[in-house]
């Protein structure tokens, strides 16, 4: 299963390295969102500084939607779904591989977005450990839930509109948790952030388990 996962993740990441869709389109979009927030919330009144953790994670969520659409459209083109099914790879492995690939792309995106926030919003970054752990857990949550619901929406004419409707309410706890944890880290009181990391950990485990077991039935239909 793990070997299959690494195989699929490697395939997706190689695809990304060659096509550079995430790098050339999703990342600029994420930075654009940061700039748009600055337009919407006047940077001189301190609103932006207070809202930074929330804005950061909203930007990550929207970019994640794009990255997920990309990750799944790769599979739906040219009957790749059938090819995956015939490949004899473990469905759980396929799921974990896709999650791993999406999570890797998101992690890179988050680091660059973090630099963007630090520069554009002049945020002083403190509490590195909590920030890093939050990023890891939140990224795993987003990638796992996103991949699972992405496959639910995949291959349909309405998938672009269906995926956000399915995914964003589900990811609400991750948005709340990651934002609070970031706030705690930036405010210099990391102890308030750790319960949120635990909640997101439960979330991520739930979706990874659901994906490992649910991916088989989802792939074998149609």
């Amino acid at each position: 299963m793990l070997r299959d996962a690494l195989l699929i993740a490697g395939k997706d990441l190689r695809l990304e390295l060659r096509s550079r869709v995430a790098l050339n389109q999703v990342l600029p979009f994420a930075l654009l969102v940061l700039v748009l927030f600055a337009f919407a919330l006047d940077p001189d009144r301190g609103l932006l500084a207070r809202a930074t953790p929330g804005l950061y994670w909203v930007a990550v969520l929207f970019s994640a939607l794009l990255a997920l659409q990309r990750s799944l459209s790769v599979e739906s083109a040219d009957g790749n779904r059938d090819a995956l099914r015939l490949s004899g790879l473990d469905p759980a492995g396929i799921f974990l591989g896709k999650v791993l690939a999406v999570a890797t792309q998101l992690a890179v995106l988050e680091v660059l977005l973090g630099v963007g926030v630090a520069v554009l919003y002049t945020t002083r970054i403190t509490g590195w450990v909590l920030l890093a752990v939050t990023c890891v857990v939140a990224t795993a949550s987003i990638a796992a839930a996103g991949t699972l619901f992405g496959v639910v929406a995949a291959g349909l004419r309405v998938r672009e509109t269906l995926l956000p409707l399915l995914l964003l309410p589900v990811l609400a706890p991750v948005l709340i948790g990651a934002t609070r944890a970031f706030e705690a880290a930036l405010a210099g009181s990391p102890s308030e952030g750790w319960p949120w990391v635990g909640l997101m950990g439960v979330f991520a485990s739930l979706y990874i388990v659901a994906g490992v077991f649910g991916f088989g039935p989802l792939l074998e239909e149609s």
Partner: peptide, 12 residues
């Protein structure tokens, strides 16, 4: 989902 959402919103 409802349980997790409830929990997170409650803490929040």
């Amino acid at each position: 989902n409802v349980i997790i959402v409830r929990q997170s919103v409650q803490w929040w």
